[in-house]
């Protein structure tokens, strides 16, 4: 059974300019031990989707009544995260069954409280363990993520850590409560490639060891290729293509995914021109009707793409895309 199932997720925000749609009809699921990559440009709704799983979006958020986020944590009744009403019930999905690591580790630690104290606080919040036991677990986790002299580091502050170490400490803290699902929002974007490679290796090892599911958000298709099992490509709040990493990267079906790959500088072909996706991403206030991508698409069919929303179409086993111009043998899912 999948760990988390997101069904028909539609998220709107109340703003002065009216109701803005940030995420529309998003569906995915993650099994235990599986890494799902979520890729897309800034403004595509990646982070809003992820925050919805922990109910971290702001007070002006409107979840569509048809949306469901089913959490199937072991030894617990299945739970719809969106049905949680009271703040205190949300502790289960905020650091309990679900943990999150953020892009900028400096901004995610409290600067005036030691790393260790923050780890203890989190552990005691989610269990009834003693302070001494929480300290032991914290130090153990720091050691586990490859921080040398963990007992000394435990009492230090975020500013005394380098960028790579902060991100490791962040991962240690997120995993200390043994979450079932880890949300990693651009966890390596602010790091150098050499440190990024270390952090990616670490996360792969931890998935193997702890068997949790990961929702890995990034704009870097290379990072996705090296970490994820499956990938979902988002554009303007919609998942336009999803499938196994190998399928989506080597045989992209949606024009947007193809465009992203054509714009990417690749080391295996230095002569390939970098082809940007034509045009600009539309403002969320002017969301296109029909297929959200039709304003920038080179396979745009007038009278169809600008009027109807494309259904999810099976490209091959486990690989679907939302596009009217898929090959003949494609069937409607």
């Amino acid at each position: 059974m999948s760990l988390i199932e997101v069904k028909n997720l539609t998220i709107r925000f109340k703003t002065d300019e009216g109701l803005i749609t940030a995420v529309e009809d998003v569906n995915f699921d993650i099994a235990p031990g599986e890494v799902l990559g979520l890729v897309g440009e800034s403004g595509s709704g990646k982070s809003v989707t992820a925050k919805a799983l922990m109910r971290l979006n702001g007070g002006n958020t409107v979840y569509d009544p048809a949306s469901h986020i089913m959490l199937n944590a072991p030894d617990r009744e299945p739970l719809d995260v969106l049905s949680l009403k009271r703040e205190r019930d949300m502790i289960l999905v905020r650091g309990g069954a679900i943990s999150m690591i953020f892009q900028e580790p400096m901004a995610s630690f409290a600067p005036a409280i030691s790393i260790g104290k923050q780890m203890i606080e989190q552990l005691q919040l989610h269990s009834d363990m003693s302070k001494k036991r929480a300290r032991e677990i914290g130090i153990e986790m720091l050691e586990r993520v490859g921080i040398s002299e963990p007992a000394k580091r435990f009492d230090q502050y975020a500013f005394e850590f380098s960028g790579g170490m902060r991100q490791r400490a962040m991962i240690a803290m997120a995993l200390s409560t043994k979450p079932k699902l880890l949300i990693a929002d651009e966890p390596t974007t602010a790091l150098d490639v050499t440190i990024q490679a270390q952090v990616i290796d670490l996360m792969k090892d931890l998935v193997r060891e702890f068997g949790m599911g990961i929702l890995f958000i990034t704009h870097d298709l290379g990072v996705i290729a090296q970490t994820a099992d499956r990938v979902a490509v988002m554009y303007l709040g919609r998942i336009v293509e999803t499938g196994a990493v190998r399928q989506v990267i080597t045989r992209p079906a949606h024009p947007y995914t193809q465009g992203l790959l054509n714009a990417l500088p690749r080391l295996d072909d230095l002569d390939a021109p970098l082809v940007p996706v034509a045009g600009d991403i539309p403002s969320p206030l002017e969301r296109p009707l029909g297929c959200v991508f039709h304003t920038r698409c080179d396979r745009f069919i007038k009278g169809i793409c600008n009027l109807q929303v494309p259904e999810r179409t099976v490209v091959e086993e486990g690989h679907t895309a939302r596009c009217f111009d898929l090959t003949q043998d494609a069937r409607v899912a």
């Binding site: 490639v193 050499t194 990024q196 490679a197 990616i200 870097d220 298709l221 290379g222 990072v223 290729a225 090296q226 990493v245 190998r246 990267i249 990417l264 690749r266 080391l267 295996d268």
Partner: peptide
């Protein structure tokens, strides 16, 4: 080392 740290697009 820098070159080999670049995440490759090839999952294999």
């Amino acid at each position: 080392a820098l070159l080999s740290a670049i995440p490759s697009l090839d999952p294999d």
